[in-house]
Write a protein that binds this DNA or RNA. Structure first.
Lengths: 217, 217
DNA sequence: CATAATTTGTGCAGGTTTTCACATGTGAAG
DNA sequence: CTTCACATGTGAAAACCTGCACAAATTATG
């Protein structure tokens, strides 16, 4: 259980493995080899074994991994054996879509607070009885409830840093940021960016470089 | 102009530089040094110079980079000096939010077709006069229009692979996938995944490992 | 024109991540 | 009980990426 130096990419891959395992278990696959799982996740088998080795020995030599057991181990590693409470700021098209997206809820990520700067939206009720509060009431609203683990920023770029600062001030240490900017982050906090435009730029580059490439057969 | 072996991360960073440059130019900053830009993007200055060196020499020694010139060069590299035509499949909460999101449009990514499997949604009109077609009409609709560059998958996970296959079959070679699964991709095609849950899992792991850490001191 | 002050572009070293290859452990069959 | 087939766990090699440190180029100044 050496947690010393774990590549960030390993965590992301564990998340993939987890999903595939859920899927396999639904199909009554009880045992899976690194070979098989690797194929499904499109990675190298040794990679999977290395990733898991950071956290322990979960397989049986000559056999493979017991699906449910491995699922449970990864669940423990990632911390998915609990509910994570989230607050979202910015209830525009994207924010609404996120709240309505039941994939979050199904995986234990629950929205427990929602904020917007538009007073006309305040007191509107969203999915699961979630009520929109005014952004200026953020400190009070969060102080009055059980602590929130993750903040979600779904505001325009111009607001994002300000909103992030307000969230950090309440003691939140993790943000999921949908605004296309780099958030300045205090020590001990983490921001994960979901940046559509960057992804599209990657596709644009791919298509462009394919065209430009002087393919000599 | 050695395009031989460019790290994927370089492309992603170019996208960041591009955004920051846009911003700087708006503030009438004519010249920027790698030092300055690095600070703003939170990377190493040498990294920026290395990234740019893959594609040419765009700076002036002793001076720095002319903002607009560099912006133009990166625009050319990434292929952002044109309109990219996109088709979106799945007009639920997320799909609607994407179409409404004007950040795409502003950066040259235009939705020109929209599909859904729900017949009740067919013929509904979205932003910019975009009309929803039935998913089964996808081949015909796309055949009748100027070619589409990028497919966007905003369907539930179960549909995603099927939709991807249909899109690939029309000749589309790039996908932006919002479904939480790994898409099987033919040779010469590219899929970029925007996977919220993976990002959340990363945050969950961060928070969990921070708690578990036996902090000596 | 020479010198100083900059800031780029880049060879090289260092570090991290991925992959290979094999020893180790396990279950099954004869 | 021995042997075989198999799949994990892991040290070592390879591939990849980043960061340093300095040479090269440019402008400014006297």
């Amino acid at each position: 259980m050496k947690s010393s130096k774990i590549p960030p990419a390993t965590i992301t891959r564990l998340s993939f493995y987890y999903r595939k395992l859920e899927h396999l278990i639904k199909e009554d696959v009880n045992i899976v080899s690194s070979e098989k799982l690797a194929q499904l996740c499109d990675v190298n088998p040794a990679q999977i074994r290395k990733d898991l080795a950071y956290f322990g020995e979960f397989g049986v030599r000559g056999v493979g991994y017991y699906s449910t057991e491995l699922l449970g181990e990864i669940r423990k590693i990632l911390g998915l054996n609990r509910i994570w409470r989230m607050a979202v700021v910015g209830i525009g098209n994207l924010g609404s879509a996120l709240v309505a997206h039941d994939n979050f809820h199904k995986h234990g990520y629950h929205f427990v607070a929602a904020f917007d700067s538009d007073s006309r939206k305040v007191d509107q009720i969203l999915q699961h009885g979630l009520k929109i509060s005014h952004i200026d009431a953020l400190p009070q609203v969060l102080a009055e409830m059980e602590s929130v683990d993750i903040g979600v920023i779904a505001t325009p770029a111009g607001w994002a840093q300000d909103v992030a600062n307000r969230l950090f001030k309440t003691g939140i240490r993790s943000l999921l940021n949908f605004a296309p900017i780099q958030i300045l982050t205090p020590e001990g906090c983490m921001v994960q960016n979901v940046d559509f435009t960057v992804k599209l730029d990657n596709l644009a580059y791919f298509l462009t470089s394919e065209l430009t490439r002087d393919d000599p057969l």
